[in-house]
Amino acid sequence: MQGWRGFRKSYFVYSFLRDPMAMGSFLCLAILVMVSFGAPLIAPHDPYDSSTIDIMDSEMPPLWLDQSDARFLLGTDSQGRDMLSTMLYGMRVSILIGLGAVALQAFMGIFVGLVAGYRGGRFDAFLMRLADVQLSFSTYMVAIFFGALFQAAFGMGRYEQLAVPLLVIIIGFAEWPQYARTVRASVLAEKKKEYVEAARVIGLSPGRIMWRHILPNTLTPVLVISTVQVANAIMSEAALSFIGLGMPVTRPSLGSLIKAGFDYIFSGSWWITLFPGVALVVLILSINLLGDWLRDFLNPKLYKA
């Protein structure tokens, strides 16, 4: 057992090392995750401490331009916050929301999809129509509704602290049907195959057949969706801040920083738009490139010679 694990590990490492793209994107992602989660230690300023922010410092350009300030390497935003620190903190928020929301979506969606596809019949129809109902209420309506519920439950003041879990729930809740429909379709194709019949004949429980036998064979589209969906979840949060339902302005995510950049696109203060945009592109690019490689590696149907 130990030896097999060792082999697998070494093969994993071997094929990883052979692929510069995978290595590069992994390195990139690792650095981004480390600096964003280490933001309280690394960042030169604390953007969450509003008493250190001074409006008179606003819209300072990056260090290498005229009229810059030595305190602010990448310049400041419209409030006088240090861009670099705000981006680091914001990236942490975005990563949390992206991964959290996708985990929730995947969990709900895979569960519903498996059950619907495997049980079929009325059960299937019911669950799929439920998915249609959910899809009809886009992220926006879900955000408005959960926001109202939240406020009734916790009051106005707690929003700043609880916005991240709230947004994870909103985005996770709004987009599970994507997974459900995809998994269901694959299950429909798989469940007539011989191996499922065989598993049934030897008396395995439906739960075991679904999780251990059918699910692994439906993973290709699920994995594709997942890597892209992380980006989508981060985008959904940005889109919510576009209409004013995202992270609180005093706790910006990368997405809400980009929304702020949208306002400044014609203003000449280009760094407000550009830096968060570049950071987000790099983050999502490395997640996806790593995802592309990992998917190929994990897929049992591909020969890896």
């Binding site: 509003s50 008493s51 409006i55 419209s78 409030q79 106005m156 707690r158 004013g244 609180p248 302005v249």
Partner: peptide, 25 residues
């Protein structure tokens, strides 16, 4: 409006009034 409110939050924090801000459509 949102940017103004945010700026006022940091100004009030300088006299130790901590403000929890919520903006909405």
């Amino acid at each position: 409006d949102e940017k103004i409110a945010e700026a006022v939050v940091s100004m009030l924090s300088k006299i130790n009034i901590k403000v929890e801000l919520k903006t909405m459509p």
